[in-house]
């Protein structure tokens, strides 16, 4: 495992050592005692048992000692956890959005990414938002995890202490592609982070890139997690693939009736705003949320440009 990747690692790992250490001592001790008794007081070696009904002293001893030990374990667990609840005031704020089955991180300067970028040695506080069902944001290397509950904003914070890339998983079961709902945390030294942060926010650069047809659309598709369900290479996921879909004729299910429809600008717009209205045959209704809150007509026009490039 990674050591010291965040400010919570050492206290959490100390709690692990205390709890598991005491447990292993007891497990081994009791098991060996038991085996010794089975050997020593086997009926061949000890034909007649001595009847002992109990001992109040022993009962008190093996009630009090474990009670003290579990209180010690409780303390270490609490001590490691308690700081996780109090983010410092000056922490950098990032809004983490989860939806089936992808991530979107929004930074204070307005940029959006599907990978979490954080600066080294700086407190980062996440607002955890879910757009549909319960998800849970888990960064094993940092020892942090908190559920993302729709209708509620949970909090998480940490200081990344080692540059590098770390896994970020969803740990609350959220349906079909739960096990594919992962991304990375990229921890960059502050200067590198600042360069990245400024470059991403630089609108002239963005505009430059956007001149190439489909580039802006691809960014929108990536940051909104569309590719979690719609592949760009023709493989079948939860939703129809984007490859070659534009201009293609598909059979859709409209209120229980099947009809043929050409995938044009109007159909794509409707599918993004009201995903359940015309579902392509062979796919399930109710799998996609409406993106009316996240995307506008201009974004959709860019997406359509992108789809046109996927022949």
């Amino acid at each position: 495992m990674y050591s010291g990747a965040s400010n919570f690692v050492s206290a959490t790992d100390t709690a692990f050592v205390v709890v598991i250490g005491i447990s292993v001592i007891f497990l081994v001790g009791i098991t060996l005692t038991m085996l010794w008794f089975v050997y020593r007081y086997n009926k061949k070696r000890n034909p007649v048992a001595t009847q002992i009904h109990g001992s109040n002293t022993l009962e008190v001893v093996w009630t009090v000692i474990p009670t003290i030990l579990v209180l010690v374990m409780f303390f270490y667990g609490w001590a490691g956890y308690s700081p996780m609840r109090n983010a410092p005031e000056n922490a950098m704020k990032i809004r983490a959005n989860a939806r089936m089955w992808s991530w979107l991180f929004e930074y204070e300067n307005g940029i959006k990414t599907d990978t979490l970028y954080v600066p080294l040695d700086k407190a980062v506080a996440l607002d955890l938002i879910s757009l549909d069902v319960i998800h849970s944001l888990y960064i094993p290397a940092f020892r942090v995890k908190e559920d993302m509950v729709p209708g509620k904003t949970n909090k998480m914070w940490f200081i990344a202490q080692k540059a590098g890339n770390y896994e970020l998983f969803c740990t609350e079961y959220c349906g079909l592609s739960h096990s594919y709902m992962f991304t990375e945390v990229k921890v960059l030294p502050q200067p590198e982070f600042d360069v990245w942060y400024a470059r991403m926010a630089d609108t002239t650069l963005q505009k430059e890139a956007a001149k190439i047809p489909g580039v802006r659309g691809r960014q929108i598709v990536q940051t909104n997690g569309c590719l979690a369900c719609h592949s760009a290479d023709g493989s079948k996921l939860i939703g129809p693939t984007f490859k070659g879909i534009y201009g293609h004729t598909v059979v859709v299910n409209t209120d229980g009736r099947e009809r043929e429809i050409v995938v044009d600008d109007e159909y794509i717009t409707r599918s993004i705003y009201e995903p359940d209205s015309d579902v392509v045959k062979g796919y399930t209704k109710g799998m996609m949320i409406s993106y009316k809150q996240q995307l506008n007509d201009a974004d959709i026009a860019e997406i359509i440009e992108y789809l046109k490039t996927l022949k």
């Binding site: 919570f8 709890v19 996780m84």
Partner: peptide, 11 residues
């Protein structure tokens, strides 16, 4: 016990 202890359960 590992799951009952807060810091370790979070992980």
């Amino acid at each position: 016990l590992v799951l009952g202890s807060l810091a370790t359960d979070i992980h």
